[in-house]
């Protein structure tokens, strides 16, 4: 029988230069987002003469940025193919605890703020631990349960009361300016930079993408999948607490039903930003643009007196748009 000869192997070299394709460069979701953002601004300007005014833009930014802090860790979670629908409840619980320790337990406001952050992080930590210890259950169902539980605890603490009377300096978070720039905007930019660097420039970020594409292969490659997940969910809880501080500061008080359905806005912003719900894909810059799209759209529609509850439709539609368009595009390319 004829023998197969062993091919003598040729020394091969591989290119280590990243290939650059102009088509790919322009074929990016972020360009589409930028165009949509410009469209939204143009629309708002045409609808309301008050829109393109530095003061009004600045105020608008202050209003919608509070929940934007959660978008970053939510993007991490979605890249890992998980989801966290308990973040709105975490905002409520951490702000309620903050107000209660300040008003009822006599803690200083500084102390209360720290406690708020701890409570938020703890909520996230519990989510993360449950998710890695009970792998048979999806993150959907676990965070659904904690979503009810966290808000339930907030109701047990405050019933349906509001709690406020924060010291004057606390209002700075929500209303303060530094050199004419809203404090929240400065913090938002810092957070965006930090999360962006974390995701795109560190080994931790690389692990997040790896887990999103293939968690089993990641585990076999020595990635500590469980620890990464726990850290990311804890970050989500922590950022929810940051949101809680800004929200309570801006509103001057808090109550258990605060931040209801924030998870939808947050997930919609992340999905619109190009974070695929199938995992592994998306960049943080997209979510930043998406935050401004959703924020300005809501603000602009508010200017022309569309009631805020109707805006639910807009956010829902944007979420659908974000998840459907890439699928349609892909199927057309395949054909």
């Amino acid at each position: 029988m004829a023998q197969k000869s062993i091919q003598p192997y040729v020394q091969r070299t591989l290119s280590a230069e990243r290939p650059f394709s102009i088509k790919q460069f322009f074929f990016q979701w972020e360009w589409l987002l930028a165009a949509i953002l410009l469209g939204v601004i143009a629309l708002n300007t045409s609808l309301s003469p008050y829109f393109l005014n530095v003061n009004s833009l600045r105020d608008a930014t202050m209003v919608f940025l509070d929940k934007a802090f959660i978008v970053f860790p939510m993007a991490f979670i979605m890249i890992m193919r998980d989801i966290d629908i308990s973040v709105g409840s975490t905002v409520a619980l951490s702000s309620v605890v903050m107000a209660t320790v300040y008003n009822s337990l006599g803690a200083s406001m500084e102390m209360a703020v720290v406690i708020c952050l701890i409570v938020g992080a703890l909520c996230g930590l519990i989510n993360g631990l449950l998710i890695v210890k009970f792998k048979e259950l999806s993150a959907v169902i676990i965070t659904l349960a904690t979503m009810i539980l966290y808000r339930g605890i907030a109701y047990i603490i405050l019933e349906d009361q509001a709690s406020g009377n924060f010291p004057e300096w606390f209002g700075f978070f929500g209303w303060g300016y530094v050199y004419g720039i809203p404090f929240i905007l400065i913090l938002f930019i810092i957070a965006a930079l930090l999360f962006g660097l974390l995701l795109h420039k560190t080994t931790f970020g690389r692990h997040i993408y790896a887990i999103g594409h293939n968690d089993i292969a990641s585990k076999f490659s020595g990635v500590n999948v469980d620890r990464t997940k726990v850290i990311v969910f804890t970050l989500a809880g922590l950022m929810a607490a940051v949101t809680a501080i800004f929200l309570a500061s801006r509103m001057g008080s808090t109550r258990p039903n605060i931040a209801n359905m924030y998870e939808l806005d947050v997930i919609a912003m992340a999905a619109l930003g190009g974070i695929s719900t199938a995992g592994g894909k998306g960049r943080l810059i997209g979510t930043v643009i998406a935050i401004f799209i959703v924020g300005y759209l809501q603000y602009g529609l508010g200017l022309i007196n569309i009631p805020s509850q109707t805006l639910l439709i807009v956010v829902g539609a944007l979420l659908l748009f974000a998840v459907i368009v890439p699928k349609l595009n892909l199927s057309r390319l395949k054909k």
């Binding site: 790896a210 594409h213 293939n214 292969a217 592994g280």
Partner: peptide
Amino acid sequence: QKQGLILQW
């Protein structure tokens, strides 16, 4: 395919 490589990378 499942345990060894991340095929999309």
